[in-house]
Simulated assay, not measured.
Amino acid sequence: MKTQEIKSKLSPEQQSALLGTLKTRFEKHKNRHKVIDWASVESRLQSSPEKLWSLYQMEETGGEPDVILFNDSSDEILFCDCSAESPTGRRSVCYDREGQESRKEHKPANNAVDMAAEMGIELLSEQEYRELQKFGPFDTKTSSWLKTPAEIRKHGGAIFGDFRYGQVFVYHNGAQSYYAARGFRGKLRV
């Protein structure tokens, strides 16, 4: 078995605990997923150990993942970080490696794009972030890096969002910036 395969496999105890946590959250927040039942979600997860591993990473870093969409046409279930604030285990990071490496001093330990890739998840786009806020509010005290369009990124910038004054705001910052209250939210297609 390859190192990556070993790394991305949960023990039976971890899998059972995670499924229990996800089921409890799923049942508590039925407004996020009205057209799908837990048995369908659980069945799909049990046949995708690599997806369970990614959800475990989301949970362990404070994301509180939950189902927010089932797409009949693509037959996909979409999990998203639904923690009230940006996940605590993913804060104080630059947007991407280029931004991180461009810092001359006080470099953070990681960046949002690489962390997401290591976890097997994707950053939310601006549109997805706005859709998530329909179940919110989220990020009322924090902010979250968002998948940045190439045109903005080529100029050194990156975008992030938050929720203030009853509105979703999307702003820009240098990709090399990082703050204790800014992390990132991810999504996982199953």
Rank of each mutant, 00 (worst) to 15 (best):
S102F: 00
F70L: 03
I159R: 13
A17S: 12
L19C: 04
S86C: 00
A116K: 06
S73E: 15
L69Q: 12
A117Q: 12
Y178D: 05
G99V: 02
P65D: 07
N173E: 04
N71R: 12
H29G: 07
G120K: 11
N110P: 09
A39C: 08
M119Q: 12
D72S: 15
E151W: 07
S125W: 06
L146D: 08
L22W: 04
P12C: 06
K34R: 15
W145Q: 00
A181Y: 15
N31L: 11
M115E: 13
E76T: 14
L69A: 13
F138N: 03
A117H: 11
W53L: 06
P108H: 02
S11Y: 06
R153W: 02
S86N: 02
R32H: 12
W38Y: 06
A109G: 12
F169P: 04
K2S: 15
S102D: 08
E126D: 12
L10D: 03
T21K: 03
E13I: 10
K7N: 11
D81A: 07
H155C: 13
T142A: 01
Y171C: 01
T142G: 08
A84W: 09
G166Y: 08
P108K: 04
S43K: 14
V41E: 02
V35H: 13
R44F: 03
I77T: 06
K34T: 15
